[in-house]
Computed example of a mutant assay.
Amino acid sequence: MKRVGFRWLARGSCRHSEAMTIRGGSRCSVDFPAMVGVIHHPERGILLFDTGYDPAFIAETHSFPERLYRWTTPVSIGPELEWRQWIAAQGVDPADISGVIISHFHGDHVAGLRHLAGLPLYCARAGLDNLRRPGRFRRVRQGLLAGLVPPACDEQAQFFEQAPEILLPDAFTPFTSGRDILGDGSLLAVELPGHCPGHWGLALRTQDDRYLLLAADAVWSARAIEQRRPPPRLTTALLGDTPMYRTTLDRLHQAHVRNRDLVILPSHCAQAAARFEQGGSDGN
């Protein structure tokens, strides 16, 4: 795999009961950061993996029924998360961003897309199609806010399902293949089904020679992977497909056990993010 630079940065957070994200978890509310991957490609410039929260999320959840989303998962979005201020704080020139990769279309992963609407969007056709289906109540129940994804994004979409399928390095076993979204072997989309329609992760190799699997919301925490502890059925049935979710969790657990140098980064796990930031090879 061609090596790329990578940073894993929080952009906003939400609070909800830990028990809804892992079987046997505490009923107390826990902060869940929304992580954004900043990928420095040697030829393509900067690509983002998801966008985290954005003030647009507050505007989009002002009215009912979308406001239910904000009620059930209270969100923290400070003024420092305004797009121009946040991106400048990361030392990124917006002109250097060449595309955005979306793991899935839940609001906490796409809230910043309006700032990137003219750029190539790499995503799953199944996820975008599901977002565009009618029914506001249905969308809110599934964590979808269609207004966060401008129509211009649809026009720029390049779908994972249509990218060439190639073999993954052994470091990702039992995941064996991915979709080569740039055509150079650097960024391989890996389907991680169950959380919602069109849910994918991303496999990459960093410049310091670490293999990473960005797992998005296939799990909410590294602990869930280590202990094979899925969310309660209520959570997975509400958002997606429980049997598929648990099969994906089993495969992530196998990857963790077999490949101790593989870093698996869920999108909402502060502990895994901190270990990665500290340079630990075991991101799980």
Rank of each mutant, 00 (worst) to 15 (best):
G91H: 05
V92G: 07
D93K: 05
D93S: 14
P94V: 05
A95R: 14
D96E: 15
S98W: 11
I101C: 00
I101H: 00
I101A: 01
F105H: 08
F105Q: 00
H106Q: 11
H106K: 04
G107Y: 07
G107T: 00
G107N: 07
G107E: 06
D108P: 05
D108K: 01
H109P: 01
H109R: 09
G112Y: 03
G112D: 08
L113G: 03
R114M: 10
A117F: 01
L119M: 12
P120L: 10
L121H: 08
A124T: 08
A124G: 15
R125M: 06
R125F: 10
A126I: 10
L128E: 09
L128F: 09
L128Y: 09
L128V: 08
N130K: 13
L131H: 05
R132W: 13
R132Y: 13
P134V: 01
R136E: 14
R136S: 12
F137T: 11
R138E: 06
R139I: 00
R139T: 00
R139V: 02
V140P: 13
G143M: 02
L144F: 12
L145P: 06
L145W: 02
L145N: 05
A146H: 11
A146F: 02
V149T: 07
V149L: 03
V149P: 02
V149I: 05
P150C: 00
P151G: 04
P151W: 03
C153N: 08
D154V: 04
Q156A: 05
Q156K: 14
A157K: 09
F159P: 07
F160H: 05
F160V: 02
F160E: 02
A163E: 06
P164T: 13
I166D: 00
L167Q: 15
L167T: 15
L168P: 08
L168R: 09
D170M: 14
D170T: 15
A171L: 04
T173K: 13
P174G: 10
F175Q: 03
T176H: 11
T176G: 07
S177M: 13
R179S: 11
R179L: 07
I181L: 12
I181E: 02
I181Q: 02
G183E: 07
G183F: 06
D184V: 01
D184I: 01
G185S: 10
S186K: 07
S186L: 01
L187F: 06
L188V: 08
L188S: 08
L188G: 07
A189Q: 03
E191T: 04
P193N: 05
G194M: 02
G194I: 00
G194T: 01
H195L: 09
G198P: 09
G198Y: 11
G198K: 10
W200I: 00
G201F: 00
G201T: 03
L202M: 12
R205C: 15
L212R: 11
L213E: 07
L213K: 04
L213N: 09
L214S: 04
A215C: 06
A216V: 01
A216E: 00
D217P: 03
A218S: 10
W220L: 04
A222D: 11
A222N: 04
E226N: 12
R228F: 15
R229L: 15
P230Y: 08
P230M: 03
P232L: 08
L234D: 13
L234Y: 13
